[in-house]
Design a protein around this nucleic acid. Structure first.
Length: 637
RNA sequence: GCCACCGUAGCUCAGUCGGUAGAGCACCUCACUCGUAAUGAGGAUGUCCGCGGUUCGAUUCCGCGCGGUGGCUCCA
């Protein structure tokens, strides 16, 4: 590679050296065109990097995860070059690859708009077509700073200063040079498929006090097919969008007049919530939880005592009654503490597991609200477990089992993360140690794989976060299990142990589904609105073929209702195919066809929403069939 | 909160370079009594998100507000 003089020169004193690309070619590697970079003794490098020949070389292919990241990172450089050419005076900042693509943040006299994107894409295509080589150059920080000062790039200068490194690497393609660790693809022509997707504002280094930059997002792939598939996935996600389906299936609505982040539940959404709540209550009672209920507003004095006023005030709503200030609860814990403290507790009473489907209000910033997934009023399946320190392990394990059972019911897979002590935190080392160990121990005993997030715990204790994965492999956080040492202390919780002395109990704060609103939003997208029968707002719909069948239809409806089946009837004088279509669009699990034959033989012919027809059934037979399916909480087959 | 985009009939959306608006579906009426994803014909439907400004005239342009969508360190 002739355009790699610099790195060559640096190492010229050594004997003969090769580029890793040459070496791979020498070794007879096939598909060399699909190789974007290389691992040299385990470290990612450019194809042009020079080596001696003894190293272990592993090719990084375009379609691998690492390959994609390199490709996308390079695409962000190409985009930056295009933007610099099109918008003189623009300042570049950072532009990494991200999970599904890449972005680059710019500082320009005006923010970029969606309509700027086609122009930028066009320029990028030119750059790709020109196939500029990416070249790497190592320089001292001083040289790099001088270079970027002369280029009028203050953000780059700041980055280098903050790095504080002796030397940094620069990558150039064509007229564009960027500070970058690399590695990169060998030339811009390797970018076979890309698309700019959106613009957004983003603060310099994520800090609200610093300038608002203009971010452009894009996706890039190793070939057109992969890009098309990605766009298809986006379409699929749009098809499953819970806001759209929520309106189509008549589940809920929101109203400008009512306020942002407030959900209004329609009858069909109402029954869905009810089914979930009933299910939750039953599952909690089974596991030794007790149902409690606290008031919606509590004196501000109490929120001061708990620390919420100090730490959580911006997220709370307050009101005043008889010159007394009250806070609308953003969490349910305070009442639970008061319940515990309403009597002197013995070690024999523990653990106490207080469960509340608690309605809470949190003033989320307007910009983060979204459908059911981020709202200002929601219901948590919240519980506080108060136990002796010795019982902590067992209780955590119990909650993890609970999570496992519940996720299985909905068919969610999930990952677990343990977050450990953050820098800013309270409590003794001993407590943290014990709690963290308890979390880890519970994971190991359940043989659950987990990741550790160092320093990402709550300020009062470590936690386990459950990230569930839906049908489109998207991750959502719902369940969380937190150890808390602050509240037991602040509320002076105690129990009398065998020794006759007062001791401080441990406390676990946990939710399983999290917020019902959010969980339902996820469920809608997970099932694409086609809820399994036990959850479906309407489980079956009776469809008559002609008006003659209505009297028997009425009888059937009565019998199904008696059997507690959520049944509706479409007895309109319409064609059967129309009724089937409408029931199908409502994603009703069972369409029960009643024609003359069914009337005569006192039965029905079920059609599943999958399109499959079952054979004629006597009504008793059908009732048993659907009841069993509901009982097992499984999808009809 | 900040940035970008958006807000037209119940829904999905078109339209107006400033002269008060349209299509499909849904709805209503009538005919058809029909067997597994749209029967036909006719009819009604709008403070063009709100308030203010510019203008002879604003749904259209400008400002402010309300609401929605996507973002706001996955560290060169």
């Amino acid at each position: 590679m002739t355009n790699n003089k610099e790195s060559r020169q640096e190492t010229e004193k050594k004997e003969e050296r090769f580029s890793s690309l040459e070496m791979l070619r020498d070794r007879g590697l096939k598909d060399i065109n699909r190789v974007l970079a290389v691992r040299v003794n385990g470290e990612l490098c450019d194809l042009s990097c020079s080596i001696e020949g003894k190293e272990v070389l592993e090719p990084v292919y375009a379609e691998s995860q690492e390959g994609l990241e390199i490709l996308r990172h390079s695409a962000s450089h190409v985009m930056a070059m295009a933007v610099k050419e099109l918008f003189p005076g623009v300042k570049v900042t950072i532009g990494p690859a991200i999970e599904n693509g890449f972005y680059y943040d710019f500082d320009y006299e005006r923010p970029f708009r969606e309509e700027d994107l086609p122009k930028i894409e066009e320029k990028m295509h030119e750059i790709v077509k020109a196939d500029y080589p990416f070249t790497r150059k190592e320089v001292t920080s001083r040289e790099a700073i001088d270079f970027f000062l002369s280029e009028g790039e203050p953000y780059k200068v700041e980055l280098i200063e903050d790095l504080g490194a002796e030397r940094v690497s620069l990558y150039s393609q064509g007229s564009f040079t960027d500070l970058c660790r690399g590695p990169h693809i060998s030339s811009s022509g390797k970018i076979k498929a890309f698309k700019l997707t959106k613009v957004a504002g983003a603060y310099w280094r994520g800090d609200e006090k610093r300038p608002m930059l203009s971010r452009i997002y894009g996706v890039a792939f190793h070939d057109q097919k992969a890009l098309k598939e990605h766009l298809k996935r986006l379409e699929e996600a749009k098809r499953r969008d819970h806001v759209r389906l929520g309106a189509q299936l008549d589940l809920f609505s929101t109203h400008e007049e009512i306020g942002a982040g407030m959900i209004v539940w329609h009858p069909k959404g109402g029954i869905l919530r009810h089914v979930l709540e009933e299910f939750e209550i039953r599952e909690h009672l089974k596991r030794g939880y007790e149902i409690v209920k606290g008031p919606q507003i509590l004196k501000t004095e109490l929120w001061k005592r708990s620390g919420h006023f100090e730490n959580y005030r911006e997220n709370m709503y307050f009101t005043e009654i008889d010159q007394q200030s009250y806070g609308i609860k953003p969490m349910n814990c305070l009442s639970h503490m008061m319940i515990y403290n309403s009597a002197l507790r013995s070690y024999r009473d523990l653990p106490k597991r207080y469960f509340e489907l608690g309605l809470v209000h949190r003033h989320e910033r307007s910009g983060v609200l979204h459908g059911l997934l981020r709202v200002r009023e929601f219901t948590q399946d919240d519980a506080h477990i108060i136990c002796t320190p010795e019982q902590l392990d067992q209780e955590i394990k119990g909650v993890l089992d609970f999570v496992k059972d519940m996720m299985a019911v909905f068919g969610f897979e999930y990952d677990l993360e343990i977050s450990t002590r953050p820098e800013k935190s309270i409590g003794s080392d001993e407590d943290w140690e014990r709690a963290t160990r308890a979390l880890i121990k519970a994971m190991e005993e359940n043989r659950l794989p987990y990741r550790i997030n160092e320093g990402d715990g709550a300020f009062y204790g470590p936690k386990i976060d459950v990230k569930l994965k839906d049908a489109l492999e998207r991750k959502w956080q719902c369940a969380t299990i937190q150890c808390d040492f602050t509240l037991p202390d602040r509320f002076n919780l105690a129990y009398i142990d065998r020794d006759g002395q007062k001791h401080r109990p441990a406390m676990i704060h946990r939710v399983i589904l999290g917020a019902l609103e959010r969980f339902i939003g996820i469920l809608i997208e997970h099932y694409a609105g086609a809820f399994p029968t036990w959850l479906a707002p309407v489980q079956a719909i009776l469809l008559t073929v002609t008006d003659r069948n209505i009297p028997y239809g009425e009888i059937l409806r009565g019998h199904l209702k008696d059997a507690e089946i959520r049944v509706e009837a479409d007895f309109r004088n319409e064609k059967l195919s129309l009724k089937v279509r409408e029931a199908q669009l409502q994603k009703i699990p069972y369409m029960l066809i009643i024609g003359d034959r069914e009337c005569q033989e006192e039965g029905l012919t079920p059609r599943l929403r999958s399109g499959k027809n079952l054979s004629f059934m006597k009504e008793k037979e059908f009732i048993l069939h659907i009841q069993e399916e509901i009982r097992q909480r499984r999808e009809g087959l």
